[in-house]
């Protein structure tokens, strides 16, 4: 499979009054044609910043892109002009935001909100765009007759469907879904995820699914990347990762999920807190919470190592394995 989107060494900081927030620190990621890549991490790990970075929508100020490349089919999006980026946004790469309750314009009817994206990219008249908008609504399971209604007349799950219809209206190559189901209740979550999966196949898109829910990842994704402190700490295909989670952070994430076959009284959280993003540790970003941390972890920064085919991890503990494989 060809790589459709490649993020190389992306560094994004926020300059705030309380100091510099190190949101992304040399993040590498690649998304292949037609796959669903799950990006997993806790709040503050830099997931949304990455999504906004790819869309060219990092608020500046305070956000600053300090370096790196975002290659979409070989073109560096960071070097694109504003006008060029407008042709990418919505048309090539579309995005679904976290909270459907607030991501629709309350004073414009949903048909127009979908049609706006269509007439913008496909040079259709307003009327033709509206017709296509109604078709999109049907696609996401909303009767076309509701196109003239306003967001406040829809439930949360319906709103997220509308948001999805907006994102898919111009048949994008890549869909970035930033926690698309976090704000929804569990039954609706499943519906929305199923629909996303179906539509992804139907439109043969690639999808970057941002989530903190490993269950969602297991259900939906082909590959997984785990993000911590603004960098990827482990990436693998979904089966290898659930079978053999190497990074202590990934282990902690998986251990914190209660298991159905064991009787557990207490959940097992990862000890400690996410480090303050204005003062990240010098060495491994996870060393403050890691039970295996050594002096070396605190002073030097581990690199990503491929320990098995397609399975990379950023941890000193697996240096041996890599050498072993080399031999």
């Amino acid at each position: 499979m060809d790589t459709i989107l490649e993020v190389k060494d992306l560094v994004i900081h926020y300059e705030t009054d309380d100091g510099r927030v190190y949101a992304l620190n040399g993040l590498d990621l690649d998304l292949r044609e037609g796959e669903t890549l799950g990006l997993v991490g806790e709040t503050g790990a830099g997931k949304t910043t990455l999504a906004r970075g790819i869309m060219g929508l990092v608020p500046d100020p305070p956000g600053r892109i300090k370096g790196g490349e975002i290659l979409y089919r070989g073109t560096d999006l960071l070097r694109c002009s504003n006008a060029e980026m407008r042709h990418v946004r919505g048309k090539k790469i579309a995005m679904i935001f976290q909270d459907p309750m607030t991501s629709l314009n309350p004073v414009t009817n949903v048909g127009v909100q979908i049609a706006e994206a269509i007439s913008n990219h496909e040079h259709l008249s307003h009327r033709d765009a509206l017709v296509k908008a109604r078709e999109m609504l049907e696609q996401v399971g909303i009767p076309a007759g509701r196109a003239e209604e306003y967001p406040h007349q829809f439930s949360g799950g319906m709103k997220q469907r509308v948001v999805i219809a907006i994102a898919l209206a111009c048949n994008p190559d890549i869909l970035i879904a930033d926690e698309p189901t976090t704000a929804l209740d569990v039954t609706i979550q499943a519906q929305v995820l199923d629909m996303l999966r179906e539509l992804r196949e139907k439109y043969s898109m690639s999808m970057l699914l941002i989530t903190h829910d490993l269950g969602v990842v297991a259900q939906t994704c082909d590959r997984v990347a785990v993000i911590y402190g603004g960098e990827i700490v482990e990436s693998a295909d979904v089966f290898s990762l659930f079978e053999r989670h190497l990074h202590p952070y990934t282990q902690g994430l998986l251990n914190s999920i209660p298991k159905l076959n064991e009787d557990v009284d207490r959940l097992q959280p990862i000890e400690g807190m996410m480090p303050d993003p204005t003062h990240l540790p010098e060495g491994c970003k996870f060393c403050t919470r890691c039970s295996y941390a050594t002096e070396r972890c605190r002073t030097s920064h581990p690199v990503m190592r491929e320990v098995a085919s397609g399975h990379s991890v950023r941890c000193f503990r697996y240096e041996q394995e890599e050498r072993h494989e080399d031999r």
Binding site: R52, V88, R89, G90, S103, L104, N105, E116, V163
Partner: peptide, 22 residues
Amino acid sequence: RQDYIGTARAKGISEGRVTVRH
């Protein structure tokens, strides 16, 4: 600062339209 402005921008529409319509 509202989220729907992000949605509008993510559609790739012009900044002028984002400003007036949204």
